[in-house]
């Protein structure tokens, strides 16, 4: 079942450089949490620490705790591979595997663990995931065609289908609509509304209206100053953030006076 996330005193470093400082945050299960803030404030970096994808960047490391339903992600016994199965991720730009068909793209994650997936099981998983990503009706007749042949918005939904096919608990989205046109964006936002029934969703977005439309809670990140680390300024229900935020900096950012 979908899980909640507790972050306490999280510091993120690139080598010796402290990129994000002292984040404390609780993310509710089965809801959408938006991370907003100016470029370079560390929100994407923070997002990546929730499934240990920051480890892909040489020299990146964290201090502090991230608990998913009480399990710490950074215990020595924890396998990052398992973390990423539990916490799925959708990226800024659609990234289907170029050499694979739509069908194989959806199954890519599942095939890693289930070498002998039966044809009927595989068909069922593909249909379920594509339906879950609101893509089934558009692609059901061309499942064997390359995933790269789809439009940008369809590719992004294919990536979401690929992510939910492994049945994660949590879905991280790193500006999933920034490379898409308004119609595709709206399709993805509708999808996010449906997905939160099943998944805990954390979404990074530069688009304030999007944060207001899709999320229950919003966290505002900002830089403490030029060359200083990013930090979490305020986290509150989205309604509150966009009407009466606690912090002046938040209001300044949202009303466009800054950033």
């Amino acid at each position: 079942m979908a899980k909640s996330i507790d972050v306490s005193d999280l510091n993120i470093y690139y080598g010796d450089f402290l990129a994000v400082e002292g984040v404390n945050m609780t993310i509710t299960a089965r809801s959408v949490t938006a991370l907003i803030g100016p470029s370079g404030c560390g929100k994407s970096t923070f997002l990546r620490t929730l499934n240990r994808m920051h480890e892909v960047i040489p020299g990146a490391r964290v201090e502090g705790k991230v608990l998913v339903d009480g399990q710490s992600l950074y215990d020595s016994a924890v396998d990052p591979v398992e973390v990423r199965r539990m916490v799925g991720m959708v990226f800024q730009r659609p990234n289907p595997f170029p050499t694979m068909s739509i069908y194989e793209n959806v199954l890519a994650g599942l095939r890693l663990n289930n070498k002998k997936l039966s044809k009927s099981d595989a068909d069922a998983v593909v249909e379920k995931a594509l339906r879950g990503a609101n893509l089934w009706n558009e692609v059901k007749d061309r499942l064997t065609k390359p995933g790269m042949g789809l439009s940008g918005g369809q590719q992004q939904r294919l990536c979401i289908a690929r992510a939910i096919a492994v049945e994660p608990q949590i879905l991280l989205m790193d500006e999933p609509c920034s490379a898409l046109d308004p119609i595709s964006t709206s399709a993805i936002e509708d999808l996010i509304h449906e997905l939160k029934e099943q998944y805990t969703i954390v979404i990074v977005t530069h688009n304030m209206q999007q944060a207001a439309r899709v999320s229950e809670d919003t966290a505002f990140f900002n830089l403490a100053g030029a060359g200083k680390p990013g930090r979490l300024v305020e986290m509150n229900p989205t309604k509150k953030i966009f009407s009466v935020p606690d912090e002046e900096a938040t209001e300044a950012y949202i009303s466009g006076r800054f950033g």
Partner: peptide
């Protein structure tokens, strides 16, 4: 493309599986 490598890793691929999924086909 880094995007493809990250896609594989985010699906829970080990390093070798990432290479098999993203690097070698490319």
């Amino acid at each position: 493309p880094r995007l493809n490598e990250e896609a594989a890793l985010a699906l829970g691929a080990t390093r070798w599986e990432m290479i098999r999924l993203a690097v070698l086909p490319y």
